[in-house]
Design a protein around this nucleic acid. Structure first.
Length: 550
RNA sequence: GGCGACGUAGCUCAGUAGGUAAGAGCGCUCGACUCAUAAUCGAGAGGUCGACAGUUCAAGUCUGUCCGUCGCUACCA
């Protein structure tokens, strides 16, 4: 992060999960969890964090799903929004606000942005012909039209692409087009739509992107490639009845703002909603209008152009709002070589995972595999391995190890640190350096590395114990044994700080000894305090007992 | 087809502006220890850095071609 003001406000903007179905581990590892780790760290580092997101509730897939289930879009959205909220609660994702794009506030903010861009001439009206399904009474997105591919004669080619020969298509090219919704033959019909003049921003965006420092290579390359190909103006309205209304009259009935235009506005509308809830209407400006504020967007790589091109274009056009400071988009978590996809049954959904893994264990295993630089292959076996061989063996066991010795040979009393020797102080100094380094890594959104750094602290403490053997000292020199154990405990307190953004539940179990984690620094435990008989922080998982299909 | 990326130890991944004889974790082998969730600690084995050609005093790191994998292709968001 290129900002020397460490206490600057930080907007943690997180991809809006699409409420058309369950989200899977790829989404969790790609966006929500990294954002949470980052936000938790920034709060401990003393920054004013505003972490927002919400369910994206509009768009054709939701209406189609509702139709096919014989229910309403509201019902679909409600179902998955509730599931997401349940997921977040079980995972302790620390939103300052998790809302949805279905609020009045969001519609108002969207209208404001639309109108300003319209008045400035960045939005204009054009007409085109699109396929219309008379039976269903709606215009059809390309992918909902099926027909025979003009190239390979595959009979189930979609209007946007033929899955057989891979060619990109225009729906008009299809032979014998059929509506996937009603099965009837669609007809071309004239319709008017508003377009965002992305081409207006070609130069400004190019300059802006060229000046970005410290961004991930794949994010920058992909974005620049998009711009070099030339930015095309995009329709931002759709012939739908499910969505945010168009604030300008005169383009006919049944038009709504297209989801990709309004969903990204959610970052701003959520900040405003948060401010309203707080009772200070303009509190959102601290993150959006303050030049010292950072805004970091956590998304998957499939969302890159929306966050590095389209949304910045809208912000430039609107004016006086902060552009993204960084967009550390993650690559994909893959299962058996392919992109995770709940709808195709590849990989576990978040809900399924939470039925078989403890939240912190799952958080650990995913964080250790965040696809920060390249796609990362993940299996259930790998998740179990991470939990058992790393989290439990190195860290969970260490805590249990030290607390058990204190409980058994120090009369369950936290020893004082008064008699520490040089080697004791050396351990603590090593831990303090680890805390410092892990903090820098998290600030740079190198979350995987920072986790490993934190875990190396646990290994240091284990090595310290092995070399000083307090279990022997307790028989020959109880006073020295107590000092060693007290030192190890203090060091554990330091490692716990490093791990707290990743493991909020289990690190909280140590509050009784150390008090809450409220600063990115090691704090001494409370000398002389009695401790309870220790219980392991985590359970090992037995993969054979997991009830999994794949 | 076009675009982007990836292919580094058995597995999952790092390798910053090309330069000390290629790294981490896990697994494996050997050893130490036995306080701890049979956990811990130390040592070691293991790689012609996808293939080929080129630029350079010097390439995992740059260029080209090829092979393989993945994603995107703007009306899924």
């Amino acid at each position: 992060m290129n900002n020397n003001d460490e206490s600057a406000p930080v907007l943690v903007a997180v991809a809006w999960p699409y409420a058309s179905g369950s989200r899977h581990l790829g989404h969790l590892a790609g966006a929500y969890l990294p954002a949470d780790v980052f936000a938790r760290f920034q709060r401990l580092a003393g920054c004013d964090v505003l972490m927002v997101s919400g369910s994206d509730v509009h768009g054709t897939p939701i209406t189609v799903r509702a139709d096919s289930e014989g229910t309403t879009p509201d019902e679909i959205v409600d179902r998955y929004h509730k599931e997401f909220l349940d997921n977040w609660q079980k995972l302790a994702i620390s939103w300052d606000l998790y809302t949805s794009t279905g609020t009045n506030n969001h519609a108002e903010v969207t209208h404001d942005i639309f109108m300003k861009l319209y008045e400035k001439g960045h939005i204009d009206k054009r007409s085109s012909e699109q396929f219309f399904d008379a039976e269903a009474g709606r215009f059809l997105p390309d992918r909902y039209i099926e027909g025979v591919c003009p190239h390979c004669e595959y009979s189930e080619a979609r209007g946007d692409q033929c899955e057989n020969c891979g060619r990109t298509l225009d729906p008009e090219e299809l032979i014998k087009p059929i509506s996937k919704i009603s099965g009837s033959e669609p007809t071309l019909k004239e319709t008017e739509h508003f377009y965002l003049r992305l081409s207006d921003f070609q130069v400004a965006l190019s300059d802006w992107l060229s000046s970005r420092k410290g961004w991930r290579n794949h994010v920058l390359n992909f974005s620049k490639g998009w711009i070099e190909e030339g930015l095309h103006d995009r329709a931002i309205t759709r012939d739908l009845d499910w969505g945010v209304s168009v604030p300008v009259a005169g383009i006919g009935e049944g038009k709504k703002i297209y989801v990709w235009f309004e969903a990204v506005i959610g970052y701003l509308s959520a900040a405003k909603e948060w401010a309203k809830n707080k009772g200070v209407e303009d509190a959102w400006e601290k993150w959006w209008c303050n030049p010292n504020s950072r805004s970091v967007y956590f998304i998957g790589k499939d969302n890159i152009p929306f966050h590095t091109i389209i949304w910045p274009a809208m912000l430039i056009g609107y004016g006086d709002l902060n552009l993204p400071t960084d967009v550390p988009a993650n690559q994909y978590v893959t299962f058996k070589g392919g992109k995770a996809s709940a709808s195709r049954g590849i990989g576990l959904t978040i809900s399924e995972s939470l039925e078989v893994f403890e939240a912190d264990s799952l958080r650990y295993a995913l964080a250790a595999s965040f696809p920060e630089q390249s796609d990362t292959e993940l299996t259930v076996e790998e998740i179990c391995r991470r939990i058992n061989e790393e989290l439990v063996a190195t860290w969970g066991n260490l805590v249990n190890r030290v607390l058990s010795m204190i409980y058994n040979s120090c009369e369950a009393t936290i020893p004082s640190g008064e008699l520490r020797t040089e080697e004791d102080l050396k351990l603590l100094s090593t831990i303090d350096q680890i805390i410092e380094r892990a903090g820098q890594e998290i600030d740079n959104v190198e979350l995987r590395s920072a986790l490993q750094t934190g875990m190396s602290g646990a290994a240091e403490i284990n090595a310290y114990l092995n070399s000083l053997e307090p279990w022997k000292l307790s028989k020959t020199d109880p006073e020295r044994a107590a000092t060693v154990l007290g030192t190890a405990l203090s060091a554990i307190g330091g490692v716990r700080v490093c791990l707290s953004p990743y493991l909020p539940f289990s690190t909280q179990l140590l509050d009784e000894i150390f008090g809450p984690v409220d600063i990115w620094q090691r704090k001494e435990p409370q000398t002389g305090k009695k401790i309870e008989k220790p219980k392991p922080l985590f359970k090992k998982v037995d993969i054979d007992l997991l009830d999994l299909d794949d």
